[in-house]
Every structure is written in structure tokens, then in C-alpha cells.
Write a protein that binds this DNA or RNA. Structure first.
Lengths: 108, 108
DNA sequence: CGCTTGCGTAAGTGTATGCTTACCGTAAGT
DNA sequence: ACTTACGGTAAGCATACACTTACGCAAGCG
């Protein structure tokens, strides 16, 4: 049940942008900061949150740190909304049917 | 591009719980509040956020208001993570391959 | 060795936000 | 009409949180 942290982590717009940038391919911190309207430390802090949520992982290359998306975490979120959608749709149908029960063959 | 609001709205744990309760079936405000550790007004406020995000809709039945999940909104989120996952997986593969280029057939 | 590059961390600040209590409007029951 | 049920809204508060600047630390380079 780590998806909760994931959704919360992606709640922030800046963090979601970072995540989407990493979705294209791995990147360094300064590189990311270069494309964002916030300071580099801010990006570092966002990356920490994403990392704690298991959405991204870090690897050191020389003096810089490269972050990349963790596909498994995304898969979890995907599954969550997938199942939720199925369930919501079923509930939607059920609700529509029980509405009809009250008016039997009412045309409207 | 309304998924952004949706994700942000679901960032809050209480709101996510409300959303999941509504996923099972439509419910009234007081009914929801009865299963949550927060006051009824708090639930009202959360429902407003969910409604503004397009995740739920409202309908009045007598003196009470019934809220239900909006399947289309869930579908949007589903699609978002679905596409993101596909993209992230592709990026993951690409990254793995370009790592091999550097060491060609290096056993270590 | 200094010096530079690249980042994480600490400390501080302003604003957003989730919660509560109090209040008000609307719909149904008697 | 009076009363009760139901729920949205206002006001206030306490905490969370996103951001900044300042600093420290490790890895390459001259």
C-alpha cells in the first residue's frame, strides 16, 4: 500500500513536473533545476520526497547524482486507478439500475 | 489536463478515503462523516475540493445530498498513469542499453 | 594540495491548508 | 407555523510545507 505516499508526493505541481521530466529519461539534479522556476536545493528536497515515496531512485556518477523513475512504483499507481475505475464503473451501473427500480418502466 | 487537480485532490489521506468510500457506492455527507475521524463540516469541505476537481458529483435527495464518483475523471487518471508507465518503461530500457554501450562486453 | 563542480542539509519564513465551532438556509414532518 | 434533519459557509487557528539563503562535504582537476 505504498501508492498512497506516491499520490501524495505527486500532489505538488513542481514535484509532478520533476517526475514527468524524469519519465523521459534519467537526469541530474542541476539539470532538472535548470528547467524549473525554483532553486536547486528546492529540487533536491522534492527529489527526496519522491525517493522516500519510492517513485524515483538515485545513482552517483562522479560528483553528480542521477535520478531516474522507478517503473514498479508507477505500475502500482497504474494498478490502483485501474482497479478503482473498474469498481467505480460497476457502482455507477448498480446505482443507475436501482434508480430504475423506483420508476419501473417510467420512460423518463 | 484536469488530472493534475485530481492528483492534488487525492493527495490528502482523508480525501482519498472519502473518495474510496464513494467508489463503493453513492453516499450522503453525514453518512460519510460517520465513518471518518473528522467533523461533518470537514467532510463537506473535502467534498467541495473533490467536486471542484471533477472527481465526484452531487445530487440532492430530499434534505440530503448524495455524492458519487465521476467515472470519467477516474478514467483520466487511469490513462495518465498508464501512458506514463509505458513511457517510463521505455526510458528504463533505453537507459539500460546505453549503459552497456560504455562497457561493450565488459563482464564487470 | 588548493580550487571548482555538484548536491545534500540546516535554519528561517510566508503561505497554504485541514480542522474546529458557530451560524444560516432549505427541505420534510407534525 | 414549529421543529427537526441535513449540510453548506464563515471565521479562526495550528500545523504542514514549499521555498530561500547559507553552509558543509565528497569527487575530479590544475
Amino acid at each position: 500500500m505504498a501508492y498512497g505516499n506516491g499520490i501524495a508526493a505527486l500532489g505538488d505541481p513542481t514535484r509532478r513536473t520533476i517526475f514527468e521530466l524524469l519519465g523521459v529519461g534519467p537526469r541530474s539534479v542541476g539539470d532538472l533545476a535548470g528547467e524549473l522556476p525554483v532553486s536547486r536545493p528546492a529540487v533536491s528536497q522534492h527529489l527526496r520526497v519522491l525517493k522516500d515515496a519510492g517513485l524515483v531512485s538515485e545513482s552517483r556518477v562522479g560528483t553528480r547524482r542521477v535520478y531516474r523513475v522507478e517503473p514498479e512504483a508507477v505500475a502500482e499507481l497504474r494498478t490502483y486507478f485501474d482497479e478503482f475505475w473498474t469498481q467505480a464503473l460497476a457502482a455507477f451501473k448498480t446505482a443507475a439500475e436501482s434508480e430504475l427500480e423506483g420508476e419501473q418502466h417510467g420512460s423518463n
